[in-house]
Design a protein around this nucleic acid. Sequence first.
RNA 1: GGGCGAUUGGCUCAGUGGUAGAGCGCCUCGUUCACACCGAGGAGGUCACUGGUUCGAACCCAGUAUCGCCCA
Length: 873
Amino acid sequence: MPRTTAPSSPSTSRVPDKVSLDGLEDKWDGVWREQGTYAFDRTKTREQVYSIDTPPPTVSGSLHVGHVFSYTHTDVVARFQRMRGREVFYPMGWDDNGLPTERRVQNYFGVRCDPSLPYQDGFEPPHEGGEGKSIKAADQQPISRRNFVELCERLTVEDERQFEALWRHLGLSVDWSQNYQTIDARSRAVAQRAFLRNLARGEAYQAEAPGLWDVTFQTAVAQAELEAREYPGHFHRVAFHNVADDSPVYIETTRPELIPAVVALIAHPDDERYQGLFGSTVRAPLFDIEIPVLAHPAAEPDKGAGIAMCCTFGDLTDVQWWRELSLPTRSILSKDGRLIRDTPEWLTTASAQRFWEEVAGKTTFSARAAIVDGLRETGDLDGEPSPTQRMANFFEKGDKPLEIVTSRQWYIRNGGKAEGAGVGLREALIGRGRELAFHPEFMRVRYENWVNGLNGDWLISRQRFFGVPIPLWYPISDLGEPDFDHPIVPEQGSLPIDPSSDVPPGYEAGQRGAAGGFVGENDIMDTWATSSLTPQIAGGWGWDEDLYSRVFPMDMRPQGQDIIRTWLFSTVVRSHLEEGSLPWAHAAISGWILDPDRKKMSKSKGNVVTPMGLLQQHGSDAVRYWAASARLGTDAAFDEGQMKIGRRLAIKVLNASKFALGFGAVDDSATITEPLDRAMLAGLADVVDAATDALEAYDHTRALEATETFFWTFCDDYLELVKDRAYGADGVNPAATASARLALATALDTLLRLLAPVLPFATEEVWSWWREGSVHRAPWPGSAPLREVAGDGQPTMLDAAGRALAALRKVKSEAKVSMRTPIVGGELVVPTVDRPLVEAALADVLAAGRAAVILADETRDLPVVREPELGEA
RNA sequence: GGGCGAUUGGCUCAGUGGUAGAGCGCCUCGUUCACACCGAGGAGGUCACUGGUUCGAACCCAGUAUCGCCCA
């Protein structure tokens, strides 16, 4: 119900005697809910809609002040766009797909997911509420994936309720009927459908390849989930022997247990020490493997001996050498992190095979000890191992270094490999990044750096149990071998499916696992494979095409800078592959919240200050003000002082409004005639333009600053200057009184709308005193109507009058008397350039300063009062 | 090691070529007439450092240092 009528006849009857911020959150949340203030009107067309791809918070985690911070930024944009006349699509999702939720369900209910089990109707878990303590795997009851997902949904209902309560209290203008969970049936269907379409177009493929493997979680890990960390180890100086003359070649390695998998020694092509060795053959100690000495620029001359032992597969450099130098595959690590049990075929001498027996099946740790002992005995260990710190790759949630093992995995092309459907993809994705408007702009380079640094496609299969299953089966040959090259795909209408319990088209349940039958794919998809589709999930892709056509591509993705390489990039990939477009036009990147001591806000500290506690202590408008004071992309200090300032502003809005509305009704025939009133409105018109431009450019801090500065001038100077006139004090021309009242009403109406996105509660409260409908559905103010009534008003006049008033106040402040003390004589000397401005507002200045002084001017910077005579208060 | 960002009064931050700004805090004073969750006035900074460009640099360029984040 937008109103465009000119402000008139403020009815003062609804202005309360006492104003307060307390209780406004509950009061207005209730009204907004009841009136559907933020309900999305799905009859609007794409051009009329502003759609937001809200980040789904992890429900099993707890919200901290960082969430409040960044979600407020989004809400400010949503409220601004809504007032600009766009129909805002502002959904909320909950992320309950992934390890944190899986672990929580396990501990809470004492269960674990085992997809091989059948679904049990009416299953009741062994217990409920094992919060905080973890339950041993042996004590967890195994249940089917479907039962597990049901328990997950049961557990997260309560989390979602609490999150929603917090978001409502904060005043997020979300349409709560638009929500989703990343593990719910629709999300699973969207993720599976998108995967199958990638498969059909050749963008999803499987490959047997060496990949990073977490031995604890027993799963493959994608590049985006890696974390390089320092890991303590020892350098071992080990002698290899030249087969020609038995002369030793020393290498240094932190992983002697991989000697049985050695395929080459590699040095930098420019390294003078090894020029003579390139092309020769050396023999590995203990295992008698004969290998070449090769040159490759990835070898680091200043590291260790400068010559490296290349094993398939010790680390990612080994994989690079294996590929680029076409080295043989010698894989000795199994998926549980132990050396394989069978004797590798390349160990041909009897002594090598005998020694292998000593290490077969051992963990890398004990195999290392055995091999080091062996090397010591043969004299091939030069000196003792020296401690060092090496950089190792870790799964971000794991605590053991990743190993590299070979396995069959599913990939989606993301520009990491230029082959097949991936040719030209990297360039296309960089192009998409350039189309996307990053706020702030410098965040774009993080995207480009990431895309340019990709060294493989996106690994999406995970060898875990809880998640969205890869929706495929494989035929089993008559000999009982699964045929991975010819996957069986489900029918589109049957999604979501679970291949571990559902039966593929054309088969019977009894054929599962049988020769000539089928077998379900065991793996699930990476969580990013689902969350990369949040625009599709929220928008109804595949099940509500009408909605989808009205909201996609979306307008804005708000998110953190740490997940540009994951969430942002993967969403761009999926949208590019599926729609040939960007998923959204704008990416709004929020910064971190830092402790007052400039450290990243830690979880423990974040938990001490709970978001709800903050909101209750300071008020939601105050906390929002703090958040809105920080620019996008900029880390901000957790600063309760800033919240106090926000609270002060919100209270001032209430009080100043009550005051301005209390002078009496605006006469219908009133016009704005007084120069000072026109000046104020002209200044306000400039503020409207500045705030609008800033918000259009996703710069909410600049908009807030301009509005706030004007608002305080409005309160401290303008209100003081015109209050006698607005009251209709003795001797004041009624037209001048009407002018003041109309100007006050006009300014208040405008200021409330300018402040509404940041202070939704206080502004709505004031709006309800004298206007109809919600300020949040009122149109954003324009400067044109203000300029029309401001006529020839000059914004500088209010400043000049304010400075003159300050000079009068200073006389009293320095004399240490009350501001109500009259100045009965003296001379107000203003800068010559200001004189016409002050003169035009002189009656107001003298009334506000309770001064009877003569006006004079001279060349100076600031006004001053000469020879003031103070009267009796 | 590479990339990005930051460095301005005690604190939190504005300020992209023309005489250093705001709020908080501090100091002094005032105030039952919108607001003590208040008001007025005041003190306080060689803009991290070193060079350069320019008539003129917090701002542009080069380098250094420190801090943060991301990637190696």
